Simulated scan of single mutants.
Amino acid sequence: MGNKIDLIKIRRDLHRIPELGFREFKTQQYLLGVIQNLSTERVEIKTWRTGIIVKIHGHNPTKTIGYRADIDGLPIIEETGLDFLSEHPTEMHACGHDFHMTIALGVLANIIESPLKDDVVFIFQPAEEGPGGAEPMLQSQELKEWMPDMILALHVAPEYPVGTIAIKTGLLFANTSELFIDLKGKGGHAAYPHLTNDMVVAACSLVSQLQSVVSRNIDPLDSAVVTIGKITGGTVQNVIAENARLEGTMRTLSSEAMEKVKNRVQSLVKGIEIGYDCECTIDFGSGYYQVYNNEPLTREFMDFVEQETEATIFECKEAMTGEDFGYMLRDIPGFMFWLGVDSPYGLHHSKLDPKEDAIQLAVNALTAYLMTKGN
């Protein structure tokens, strides 16, 4: 299976042209070229912004099965030293979306060659890394016309060996939200602090207070994370900072906990405004809904993989990672799983180098599953 196209070449071609969310113009054209070369009278193709939706008509359909692959890259300078290094110096497929697209194309090629009884829709979705393509794509007329009855997707996992599919029923990935806080006080000469309102001091105090949100406001049996990843403020060493900015992320294992975290952050920021006589604004930016795997479909898939494929199932724990595929699973029954790719460097690392052996294994397993599920 999967030999109709050169999967390794495709992966390396895609790895060379990573593009950020809703700017995947080269990627879209490359994917369209491969898909159009495979097309038959049973295949229909639509585009949505920089994404692609492909429908393979079944010969006697009673349902539509969806498969989603995300297509964007990250603003990371690649340091892998690979012969097929990114040609875009400040962008990289550091989250494995080059693998995701290649696997989807391999499965698509197999289904085109051996059409199922049921319809299959392949969704090549832009902007997973930001600002989020799944939710607006779900609302698009293009996808509404071909809305799947069930849907599945995968994500590469550097920590698992090739041959492993890690999955669990229920919650797999967390609810996420960005966090941006701007503080504005009164700047001035470093020698006269009593005439100013120092926003570096205020920002440092706020960072410390934010660390109490999880430890003192979230049930110890629940889980949440508040991380401040970036602080900016001030201009030069001898001027007291008039402005400061905190940038971070929040993650929880329940939507209720996310609301508690947001409410507590707002309360702490109001306290900073009073205590440091400053003005603050909060922007929660974009956030992703939890990835929640449908139990019957997930169990069915796990049993199939164990009995009918070369892959090994590992029942993993939930993770604090975020994925906008959660919006699709909110509206459509389905599941996502981790695919082992055995790299010493993790997701979003400039040296991530997944093992390409995982590509064919995933194509074979998914093709076999869809052949069974759609016939």
Score class of each variant (00 low, 15 high):
residue 7 L to F: 07
residue 16 R to P: 01
residue 25 F to V: 15
residue 41 E to G: 04
residue 43 V to T: 15
residue 43 V to P: 09
residue 50 T to Q: 09
residue 50 T to W: 00
residue 51 G to P: 05
residue 56 I to L: 06
residue 58 G to W: 02
residue 63 K to Y: 00
residue 63 K to I: 01
residue 65 I to A: 04
residue 75 P to Q: 12
residue 79 E to K: 05
residue 85 L to P: 00
residue 92 M to S: 15
residue 105 L to S: 11
residue 106 G to F: 03
residue 109 A to N: 08
residue 110 N to W: 09
residue 112 I to P: 06
residue 113 E to S: 11
residue 116 L to C: 15
residue 118 D to S: 12
residue 122 F to W: 04
residue 132 G to A: 03
residue 133 G to W: 05
residue 140 S to W: 04
residue 145 E to G: 00
residue 151 I to A: 05
residue 152 L to H: 05
residue 154 L to S: 07
residue 158 P to V: 04
residue 169 T to A: 07
residue 172 L to D: 02
residue 173 F to M: 15
residue 175 N to L: 00
residue 183 L to W: 01
residue 185 G to Q: 04
residue 185 G to M: 11
residue 195 L to Y: 14
residue 197 N to Y: 09
residue 198 D to Q: 01
residue 203 A to M: 12
residue 205 S to C: 02
residue 211 Q to S: 02
residue 214 V to P: 09
residue 222 D to T: 01
residue 222 D to V: 02
residue 224 A to D: 10
residue 226 V to H: 06
residue 226 V to Y: 08
residue 235 T to N: 13
residue 235 T to I: 15
residue 239 V to T: 15
residue 241 A to D: 10
residue 245 R to A: 13
residue 248 G to T: 13
residue 250 M to R: 12
residue 250 M to V: 15
residue 256 E to P: 02
residue 257 A to M: 10
residue 265 V to Y: 09
residue 268 L to S: 05
residue 273 E to N: 10
residue 279 E to K: 14
residue 283 D to E: 11
residue 285 G to H: 05
residue 286 S to A: 07
residue 290 Q to P: 02
residue 296 P to K: 08
residue 297 L to W: 04
residue 301 F to L: 08
residue 302 M to H: 00
residue 305 V to Y: 00
residue 306 E to R: 14
residue 325 F to I: 13
residue 331 D to K: 11
residue 336 M to D: 03
residue 338 W to N: 02
residue 345 Y to C: 02
residue 351 K to S: 10
residue 358 A to C: 06
residue 358 A to S: 14
residue 361 L to G: 02
residue 361 L to H: 13
residue 374 G to Y: 01
residue 374 G to D: 03
